[in-house]
Each structure stands twice: as C-alpha cells, then as structure tokens.
Amino acid sequence: MIRVVSVSKVYNKGEPNQVRAVWEVSLHVPQGEMAVVRGPSGSGKTTLLTLIGCFARPSSGEIQVAGKPISRLPEKFMTLHRRKHVGMMFQQFNLIQDLSVEKNVAIPLYPLQLSGRLIDERVDALLHMVRLDKRRAFPVKRLSGGEQQRVAIARALANDPEIVLADEPTAHLDTALSQELMTMLQALKAEGRTIVIASHDPVVYGHPSVDRVLTMKDGCMSEV
C-alpha cells in the first residue's frame, strides 16, 4: 500500500541552519498492516509521517501509495489525495478549541459535495464510535486530554480514509487510555485500513496488533 523509496527531506537547504530531517529512508507497509516508527525526539518520525501523508514534498526519493507516485504531485492534487485517502491524528491534536466537538469532527467534510444531512449523519456515527455523543455541543477546550484525543480520532476518520497516520497518539494519555486507543486502532486495522504510527511509547510499539516496528535515529531508519 505504502512504499517509500530512498526518501530524504532537508529543511533550509544550502543555508547555515540546514537540517536533514529524513535521510535516504525506505520502507514498505502493505495494505491492512499497522506499522510503528519509533525513535527519540528529533529522529525524523513526524517528518516521515508528513511525507507519507502528502503534507510536504520530499527533497529526493519517491513515495507511492497503492502503486501511484504521490510525492511529485502539484499542491492541488496532493490536497485531493490527502482529502480522499489520508486521515491524520496530530501530536498536539490541532483541534479548534472554541469550536464544538461535532464541528471539529465535521471539518474535513465541509469542502466536499455532501449535503448538510449527510454530513450530520456521518458526524453522528463517528461520535457514537468514539463515545462522545453526549459531549457533541461542548467546545473542545472543555474536554479532557483523552476526550480530545477521541475527537482527533473521529476527525481523522471523517473522510473514511484508507490510510490512518498517528503522530505520538498517546503523548497526553495515561496507560489505560493508551490501551484503549490501541484497541480502537486495532479495530480500524481490522476494517482493512493501513495504519502508520510514530511513537516512542512501549504501550504502542509493544502492542500485539502492530505488524512491524521501524526505528529511526538522526533521520535514518532501521527495522526491528
């Protein structure tokens, strides 16, 4: 499903503050598998996720999704690809704090040609899945960390993506909630989605549903 071939990402190339965030990384994640990229802070995990998710272009190398090269697409097509195929859970959640739970979850659906009723139905289903029905009208800033994480999950799944990316999903959760999160991700995997997680949490990379663990250090990769 996801094939990364010798991908590098260099920020501020040619300048004194040049940073090699990812260097010559290759990996393959078949469809329906769950892969975890572990490594210390600054190892390039997040950058790799952004490249896979089409949030940025690699400086060199190629990324293929379902056999189609996506790394050199024009910005408009990268956005379309992201919109149709990718759901992202951000480390900082990146929710709009003053907006309600249901509006946050619906954000990926607004630019689509869906009727208001269909959007409402989809949001209802997602909130039920993450058990936030009763909190739907609450502004996100009034939720706990675990609840905000669930909102982030619901939003990531709003567009029914084939690929789910999660950047340090358990960073703000305790062990029990982390286990709960992994259970949800396992369920998503069971639906046939491909999941790539960046995390240094042993609860995550030690979970039995994880198919492969890759280690990154200083932008380079090795597999465990």
Partner: peptide, 15 residues
C-alpha cells in the same frame, strides 16, 4: 454503528 437520535436545529446557518 447506529446514530443516536438528537435534537437538531431545523435550519442550517447557511439557510
């Protein structure tokens, strides 16, 4: 997955 019944405003803001 079943949707919960909820009370929703009759008119969308755009309308």
């Amino acid at each position: 997955m079943t949707s919960t019944v909820r009370r929703r405003s009759r008119f969308r803001p755009a309308a």
